[in-house]
Amino acid sequence: MEIDKSLISGSTTMLLLKLLEEKDMYGYQMIEELSTKSDNTFSLKAGTLYPLLHSLEQQGMVCCYESEADSARVRKYYSITKKGKGLLRDKKAEWQHFAFAVNQVLKGGTVHATT
């Protein structure tokens, strides 16, 4: 099922950090992993990935290093930092809170109807 892009954009940072929490990856690998893990629901474009990844690096959430892919190519790997792990925790908590509230409303119930 195609998902409305605006739904994904807000959570891309969280998804990327989650991927990097498992292991260090290069850009293309992240897109592939994200696609596989979500049964092709999330197909992130390179044009969205790199600006986001680079700004996360500038903020110190991830760091990068280079490693030889083959004799001709050197790949840039990204790795999550301690600060990045902190951000991931916050983003997860925020997401869970949000998802819970949305679900409550969809079920027809009221979240804070105690007055």
Binding site: K45, A46, G47, P51, H54, S55
Partner: peptide, 17 residues
């Protein structure tokens, strides 16, 4: 083609860098 519109990607990267 899969990469996305180069002008848009470039503009976004310019903002980051």
């Amino acid at each position: 083609e899969q990469m996305g519109d180069p002008v848009m990607v470039g503009t976004q990267l310019d903002r980051t860098h």
